[in-house]
Design a protein around this nucleic acid. Structure first.
Length: 560
RNA sequence: GCGCCUGUAGCUCAGCUGGACAGAGCAACGGACUUCUAAUCCGUGGGUCGCAGGUUCGAAUCCUGCCAGGCGUACCA
């Protein structure tokens, strides 16, 4: 339940009634009721809620906003509401001050909601698929993948909280050119380890992890592929290496707190004929032509700058063709909505992909593609270029080892996806104890400590509805409750905009307000009434803090 | 060249879809622990919101043009 939302709606209704009544009685003259908002103002001095209705109506009614405001207030019926006071302020805002009881009501709602506080049903049980990370299984996960993992998983969490039925999916690019390069690189390492002359191709994978992989392989299989037909050899090496890489990717993601529901192999799309089928389908629909021996998709029809190759001259379908088949497969599985999280290096792909879906007759608006800007890594004050080819990159595992899962996830989600992210490794290490995530977790640990000691003293944590909460009347206490009240609206907004970065900011603000409260207000040892009310407040804060941390995939520690 | 993203305090970034005097965290400086965890709190300083126009009662937010950075512009993925 979202008290703020309910009150907003209520005020909106009352305002509408007032304005229409004013019109009927000839006090206001306008054609159409314009769109207006009821919001929680940033400034405390502006009341609990505020509306811009009077300002919006100014141009239609040809009256000054403040005068319109007066007229609206004259016709406003505030009976049976929390509204205590209404006034015009600034350029014509209508500010509402509510009876304090609404805040006390919030505590009861938080307590009753408990784990469900913040959840809603705007998704209405519809099916949504979130595809993210989808890293090439030719190496380990790097910082860019890590950012995608944190953002994708949090978006999935938020959608779940908003009532969607979510499937988390990882698309395994286990086909195509890169696999060829991968195979050649593996072969070179294999031969090298067995004392033969061989070199990793220039556009191959130079990372040292492949040496390790081939060492493991030799331990199992020995040198029996030394004299084998190179094609057979490469296939055996690749099969083994892909399995090993995928396993370690899974393990890293698990450590990072990310669990996928579906691991979807690109290879199966080629094998099943799905890729050829979708190409045929596009051909039938007239979106395909041949040129220079290759088969092209007319992506320019959908706003792309150039057409895109589906099948190469050598007869091999491109990554794009397979990806179309994959996305068709997604829609055919009955998802009401499909969300992709891609790195900025794929942004050129967006228009084509949506175009292809349109060409196949799907609703392209059901496909959301979130483009995530790349992570720039700094070490010793210098930019560290990341590349799988050269094997120059910090892995997700190393990141977890150095700064921890919680800090890493929090840090990645804190930045908006479309902002470039500078990640200074030295700083992250150095500041690990000052990282904002600890600030939030510390608030939670402090709360648990209070509650624990209360129990030890034989003090029961009182229920809100049985407690006189009106003794919570200091500024810090009321501010804290206001913050708790914001939470459901925030989760809803994050789900709508697919922008989870507001969650960490909220968590920091909430923790900050709690820390201020903690310094200013004692809980245990106060007179019984005050102690009881504050225990209710502290417990409610615990619930919200835990819930927001859960959404972020960050642990809420009991001790620090 | 063209397309997408970005440009807000010394640094890293928010700014709730156009609202009421531009915020936070680091960093700097000054205070606060015999009392529920000082991984904390309180206070101070710091900004022509890249630049120039435009729309609007009102612009960091929308439009146009510049400037700077990132990414893309493969029969790679």
């Amino acid at each position: 339940m979202d008290i703020v939302g309910i009150i907003q709606k209520e005020i909106e209704e009352r305002l509408k009634e007032a304005v229409l009544k004013a019109k009927d009685e000839g006090d206001l003259n306008f054609e159409e009721l314009p769109f207006f908002i009821v919001e929680v103002p940033k400034e405390k001095g502006h009341g609990d809620f505020a509306s811009n209705l009077a300002i919006i109506l100014a141009s239609q009614t040809k009256k000054p906003p403040r005068e319109i405001g007066e007229i609206i207030i004259k016709h406003l019926d505030t009976s049976n509401t929390w509204i205590k006071d209404v006034e015009i302020a600034g350029p014509g805002f209508i500010n509402f001050t509510l009876m304090r009881e609404w805040l006390y009501q919030v505590l009861e709602v938080v307590e009753r909601g408990d784990k469900k506080y913040g959840r809603s049903n705007v998704g209405n049980g519809k099916k949504v698929q979130v595809e993210f990370v989808s890293a090439n299984p030719t190496g380990l996960l790097h910082m860019g993948n890590a950012r995608g993992a944190a953002i994708g998983d949090t978006i999935a969490n938020v959608l779940e909280a908003a009532g969607w039925k979510v499937t988390r999916e990882f698309y395994i690019n286990d086909a195509g050119n890169q696999i060829e390069n991968f195979a050649k690189s593996l072969e070179a390492r294999y031969l090298q380890l067995l004392g033969k002359e061989a070199e990793v191709p220039e556009d191959g994978y130079h990372g040292e992890d492949l040496i390790e992989t081939m060492r493991n392989f030799i331990e199992l299989e020995g040198d029996k592929y030394l004299e084998a037909d190179p094609e057979v050899r490469r296939e055996a090496l690749t099969e083994y290496a892909l399995k090993e890489k995928l396993k370690s990717i899974k393990e890293s993601l698990e450590r990072f707190g990310v669990a996928f529901d579906v691991w979807f192999s690109e290879h199966t799309l080629h094998e099943s004929g799905a890729v050829n089928e979708v190409i045929e389908e596009l051909r039938k629909r007239g979106y395909v032509y041949e040129k220079d021996g290759a088969l092209w998709f007319k992506s320019t029809l959908f706003g792309d700058k150039k057409d895109e190759v589906l099948v190469r001259k050598n007869g091999m379908p491109t990554y794009f063709a397979a990806d179309i088949a994959y996305h068709k497969n997604k829609f055919d599985r009955g998802f009401d909505r499909v969300i992709n999280i891609w790195g900025a290096d794929h942004h050129g792909h967006v228009v084509r992909m949506k175009g292809a879906m349109e060409a196949l007759g799907y609703d392209k608006d059901k496909l959301d593609i979130i483009i995530m800007q790349l992570v720039r890594l700094f070490k010793d004050g210098e930019i560290l270029r990341m590349s799988k080819r050269t094997g120059q990159y910090i892995t997700l595992d190393e990141l977890i080892d150095e700064v921890g899962k919680d800090a890493a996830r929090f840090f990645f989600v804190m930045r908006a996806a479309d902002s470039h992210l500078d990640f200074d490794l030295d700083l992250a290490k150095k500041e690990s104890s000052e990282n904002p995530v600890y600030y939030v977790q510390y608030a939670h640990a402090r709360i648990i400590s209070i509650l624990r000691q209360a129990v030890e003293k034989g003090v029961e944590i009182p229920r809100a509805y049985k407690t006189d909460l009106t003794v919570l009347d200091s500024e810090v206490e009321l501010e804290l409750i206001r913050k708790l009240a914001e939470f459901p609206g925030l989760v809803k907004a994050c789900a709508e905009t697919l922008e989870p970065h507001r969650l960490p900011h909220y968590a920091i603000e909430l923790a900050g307000m709690f820390h201020s409260f903690y310094t200013e207000c004692r809980v245990l040892g106060e007179d019984e009434g005050k102690q009881a009310a504050r225990l209710v407040l502290v417990n409610a804060t615990r619930i919200v803090l835990r819930n927001v941390l859960n959404l972020l995939g960050v642990t809420a520690p009991e001790r620090m």
